[in-house]
């Protein structure tokens, strides 16, 4: 792995060089009173806090609203028009390691056969620059899902803050190319292997493994515990919308007498309509059964289908749940490892 150093005060110059090379730089900043990834020119607007940015990067690969195609009625005919998508080369700057790992999970869903063209196009234009975590926040539990504050999963470049500079690890060729955009800003450097960096890993409390609980959870399918934990859920969906790996979507038409669009919008398995048949039958008729689906999909089913958990331990769902449901604690409770 190649290692460089980049002076912090030169990050703005690097961003300018990337822009000059035709790339759009997206970094966490304040937008509409929230912290989220937005295209950014001014490095002073970058708002990096400990822990992950509240809004994950997901919205740039898998927008909350995507027109799939449109149509016009003309006499007795229907004219279809494929949706034209505008794509820039994008650089995602200062994602956290959990968010980079989450994009790999989205890849397994959207790029597996048959690949989703909308995702594929955006993904192929994205380079991911991750910032390792020098500090964790109390909701973080990445060690529990086999990741760490310095894991490289999904990253193209990996940055580590050290005084007034960054150590820059070249993880992929795509990442190296970003360095080559302005090679004079990067000096060849030396550093330990990323897993030897002084990360907060030893001090993180939430690290009981959640990676091997699939069978145990499925064995509990009919347990009363689901009633106990699931009744708390309001079904608001904030966990799914802020989850960097949740990817369920609805497909709807919006139309009038002359034309229409077919679009897809984010959806959430906690919603009662998610599984409602037209006949009125609902295989998941109550909140506990829907919450069970959420937990089992993340820690059992997805593991069987794609050989990995569908959770990166970012802790957003616990942090922002209006009724304080904490998926880490709940899985521990279900698997008999705590009594909360």
């Amino acid at each position: 792995m190649k290692i460089w150093t980049l002076q912090k005060k030169r990050v703005g110059d690097w961003m300018a060089a990337l822009r000059a090379a035709g790339k759009e730089v997206l970094a966490p900043c304040e937008a509409d009173g929230l912290l989220r990834f937005r295209p950014i020119d001014d490095p002073s607007a970058i708002a990096v806090r400990p822990g992950p940015c509240p809004f994950p990067f997901k919205e740039w690969l898998f927008p909350p609203h995507q027109v799939l195609f449109s149509y016009q009625f003309e006499g007795g005919k229907v004219n279809l028009r494929e949706e034209e998508v505008l794509v820039n080369d994008q650089v995602g700057l200062f994602l956290r390691p959990c968010d980079a790992a989450a994009i790999k999970i989205l890849d397994t869903v959207f790029l597996s056969d048959p690949p989703d063209g909308f995702y594929q196009l955006r993904r192929s234009h994205l380079t991911i620059v991750t910032l390792g975590c020098r500090q964790a926040v109390p909701s973080c539990f990445c060690p529990a899902v086999g990741l760490s504050p310095t894991s490289l999963e999904g990253s193209d470049l990996f940055l580590w803050e050290e005084d007034d500079r960054f150590l820059v690890y070249g993880v992929s060729e795509k990442g190296d190319r970003l360095v080559q955009v302005s090679p004079d800003l990067f000096e060849p450097g030396e550093g330990p292997e990323p897993d030897q960096l002084p990360s907060p890993l030893p001090f993180m409390e939430r690290k009981e493994p959640l990676t091997n609980v699939g069978q145990k959870l499925q064995g509990l399918f009919e347990s009363d515990l689901w009633q106990e934990v699931g009744r708390t859920c309001l079904g608001c969906g904030i966990c799914a919308y802020l989850c960097p790996t949740c990817h369920c979507f609805d497909i709807v038409d919006e139309s009038d007498a002359y034309s229409g669009i077919r679009c897809r919008n984010w959806d959430c398995c906690a919603f009662p309509l998610f599984t409602l048949h037209a006949s009125g039958h609902n295989p998941r008729p109550d909140q506990p059964s829907r919450y069970r689906q959420r937990v089992l999909h993340k820690f059992a089913y997805f593991l069987q289908t794609f050989q990995q958990n569908m959770c990166v331990g970012c802790g957003r769902c616990s942090l922002f749940c209006p009724v304080g449901m904490d998926i880490y604690q709940i899985v521990l409770q279900l698997t008999g490892r705590c009594l909360v």
Partner: peptide, 18 residues
């Protein structure tokens, strides 16, 4: 029978177990 949307294994509506 399941409530389905995409029909191509992406949208997550029809998941039953794995």
């Amino acid at each position: 029978e399941r409530h389905m949307k995409c029909g191509v294994g992406k949208c997550g509506h029809c998941i039953v177990a794995d």
